[in-house]
Design a protein around this nucleic acid. Structure first.
Lengths: 144, 144, 144, 144
DNA sequence: GTGGTCTAGACCACG
DNA sequence: GTGGTCTAGACCACA
């Protein structure tokens, strides 16, 4: 699975990893028992400190998203909280609410919003990137 | 204009001010030459330190969103970057792209996406709050 | 005489006036006994506070550049410090030194510096504007 | 790299740092990826407050001259605005234009200007100091 | 260790 | 009154 760290993102590196893994699980790309890269490997690949990856794995373990076994590595957990308790719905309705809030702030009509979404869906340009929990104010279109 | 600080937000207070002002300009609530509250006043109103407001105003001035004059106060700038080069479009298409990216990751069909948006628009629950640039990982769906 | 205030300049408004008047005297545009605009007039023309103009005139009076007479107005002084004590030389050698310092920092050879100056003199594009004591970091080519 | 703060300069300390770093980049003394001293170190070395250095680094980061990473430090940015869009040219032609404007105001002939520059270049007294963006009205020719 | 943020309080100069 | 700057010190989270 592809993972990416944006050091300029306000969101800490370890949380970027956590969120990307969770999205991977929620999307089905990562299946129970799938092995995760070793801490050392991932740290090297992402060019970040081992402690950072370690922290991410700890957090994922704490959330029962993954299960780490000493000496064997880390794996996607069997029964995963991300697959239950409406993770997908929350993620989607959250971003939809943000869309609506902004549209309202700009006095964009509901019809226009739907139209924009439709056009963009049709355009098919939106990336499939899973790294999308990223903090705004540092997005690709930084406002500055 | 109404301004609000959420101390529980991961986003720092000074950035919350910056984003709310920018959204205010983008939405037309704030017009060129409109005076902003003085640093001292705003600090008192928001119950935060003067330096924090100063940091926000300085950042806005730097981005040419406002213009501050020594001894006179701060004003919305005449020609405003927020009114040009598609600030609104960027903000909207940004959040739309994120919606689509997540929907795709979840294998949600386009029709279903449109349906979800439509329902939410109809529901009318989404707040009109201008503070919407808030950092993720601290929204209602905290990291756990 | 043309006077101009740049409110974005780090240099305070009253000093901008002082320096422009002094340049006017040094250049010969302003001659002894020439009347200056009244404080009210100048304040109105420059769209600044009367106190600011007042402060500038006080400073000029203190430096014996002008002489103010109650009820009659302000005039360029008869014998002017600006015409003595090497004001012109200081102004010129100061700006020449700054040119050289920057050229050295950029590793620009002496010949090249002379060449650049010569070309620019020939080009004849440099403005004749007297307002030139302005603080850098706010010049026409703001570095930001 | 050598950095120096002149507390007598009208220009605030944090801007002196900003300008010196930018000149360092423009002159090639500082190369992409070069690490900057840590905020704490530099503050101690310059005998100023940590927040002041922080302000300078923040400003440089904003201008994309440096890149700062949480917990790791600050580095000269890869692609640097100071290396592009004619920063050197602007700085030089700015100061040349000011020289010419003043010379014209004083009715100094072009030949004389060249002569003065040449003499000063030969004299070799001009400092190589990178801190040259200093605010006027506080240079060696104070306002009086 | 690092940078990020915030507070409290101070002094200054400008308007 | 205003903004501009700086200090001292604190707490936090990240690497």
């Amino acid at each position: 699975m592809h993972l990416e760290i944006n050091p300029r993102d306000r969101k800490p590196a370890y949380l970027q990893i956590v969120d990307q893994i969770k999205m991977g699980v929620a999307s089905g790309r990562l299946q129970p028992r799938d092995p995760l890269p070793s801490i050392r490997q991932l740290a090297e690949r992402l060019r970040i400190n081992r402690n950072t990856v370690d922290k991410a794995y700890r957090e994922l373990d704490r959330q029962r998203v993954i299960r780490t076994e000493r000496g064997r590595g880390a794996f996607i957990a069997e029964s995963n909280p991300v697959d239950e308790d409406g993770f997908r719905d929350r993620v989607l309705s959250d971003v939809i609410d943000r869309l609506i809030a902004k549209a309202r702030a700009f006095r964009v009509s509901d019809d226009e919003v739907l139209d924009l979404v439709q056009k963009r869906l049709a355009g098919g340009e939106a990336s499939d990137d899973l790294d999308e929990q990223r903090s705004r104010s540092e997005g690709k279109h930084a406002k500055d």
